[in-house]
Write a protein that binds this DNA or RNA. Structure first.
Lengths: 260, 260
DNA sequence: CCTTTCAGTTAGTTA
DNA sequence: TAACTAAGTGAAAGG
């Protein structure tokens, strides 16, 4: 439970701290003047400077420079972590993984601080407004796509589409296949939908429309849209979020009628 | 220069520490029991749990759970950082950016520690053996691809290839287009090269060969290689690295030709 | 175990 | 500035 902090520890001290941390599967933060070598799919060198190294209990490692969102060097989870001192008076921290065979090696010549400890983290993480949630929003308010649109019961038997989709019927009785993209729709999205429509036309004898729904249509996809005779409807994720939110609030208020 | 560490600080203490850190553009590490909300292109929630938050002087922010290489929530550089306490006794850390409009908000109800300070990091970072560097290696030692190969002056007017490439002439006087892949070459690479060769054949009336050069050819690409009548030459990045290194260090490249 | 596809992709380069 | 492409992409899902 306890957090252990050492400020300006000696190389030997830091060595023992990290040995213990690795053995007990604690996290470790180490900052200091270091050099970093990476060998693997590519290779890199980082000359002397002060950085913060984050080492996690799962064997992942991050080397962070004072600026930039991304780590300058890293190693994913399940690495073999080793730490030792060299005669030169340096502290070496090594993280190796097989498959692909890669190694990050950090040489410290001065340690600013080490922090080790355990984290108790069982909180759920949820990412909202995924394509699945856009789908839910459209099923709730089909007019987001087109007035008079009637979503049909999902028929998985139609085949694996490979994209988040909705089957619906328009006012003229055409079958409508909707492909949902939460990111700007590229040519790929159109091609995918087109391919799917082709496979359907072979099985279903009925007028068929293909609509791509998303926040944006990439400019280079515009010509293809016309030539494939597909349609695009703009729908911002925020709008979906509002709808899901109001739907949720409605359920809540229904449930909580009279309570406030 | 100095590093400031507080263990189990009060919310008020942590608030002051972070205020000072943000004002003085220091880095800050904060660990504690927190909840995280993200609103922007998508939205996410992370329930209570102990995490490590890294805040850099450039306004970037990372929330790290005890496992996993990637941050569960983050914000890129140039964010507006704010910190304050709430009546509930929580500490709120906010990082917002415009374009896209996004916000990460962290609510701490208990702080395990804070570490703030400055990092002096001017060391050069160098990533070796990129595709560009493989290209340099091949231009230096064309025999890596084929004996007698003569690289041609790059002619950009031939068209945007979309891949790292070399134009060369073989011993028979054929025009050779070389596509370099630093990763295992997939079918995509072959298709791309093939498409490019097609476009060239329309413009150039001359025998044309296409060679993919890389560390590996994916197994599923082998049949396509034959059917498209393309060629593959294995070249390990390490070899390129050696050549670039020796070229840089000793300028002996011309003597390495026969050594392979 | 391998391949394919997606990502709050991010980041860099070029038109 | 916008579009395009690579990345030590990583991570998840499907065969």
């Amino acid at each position: 439970m306890g957090v252990s902090v050492k400020i300006n520890p000696s190389i030997r001290e830091a060595n023992e701290t990290l040995q213990t941390a690795f053995r007990s599967r604690s996290f470790a933060l180490v900052a200091g003047d270091c050099r970093v070598d990476y060998e693997g799919r590519a290779s890199s060198t980082l000359e002397w400077g002060e950085r913060i190294v984050v080492i996690k209990q799962d064997g992942s490692l991050l080397v962070h420079r004072p600026i930039g969102y991304e780590p300058v060097n890293w190693q994913p989870p399940k690495c073999l972590l080793k730490v030792w001192t060299e005669d030169s008076g340096s502290l070496i921290v090594n993280a190796t993984r097989a498959q692909p065979r890669e190694m990050v090696s950090i040489e410290f010549r001065k340690i600013m601080f080490t922090v080790t400890g355990k984290l108790d983290d069982r909180g759920d993480f949820a990412l909202h407004v995924t394509e699945e949630q856009m789908k839910q929003a459209i099923l709730t308010v089909p007019a987001l796509v087109e007035e008079g649109l009637k979503p049909l019961q999902q028929e998985k038997s139609l085949g694996a589409a490979g994209f988040t989709d909705i089957y619906a019927e328009d006012r003229e009785g055409n079958l409508v296949v909707i492909e949902i993209k939460r990111n700007p729709a590229s040519r790929d999205a159109l091609i995918q939908l087109q391919r799917y429509l082709e496979s359907l036309r072979g099985k279903i004898d009925r007028p068929l429309r293909g609509i791509v729904v998303g926040p944006e249509l990439r400019m280079n996809a515009q010509p293809l849209l016309s030539s494939l005779r597909l349609e695009y409807v703009r729908l911002a994720p925020e709008k979906c979020f509002e709808i899901l939110k109001s739907q949720r609030d409605m359920k809540l208020s229904q449930f909580l009628v009279g309570e406030r």
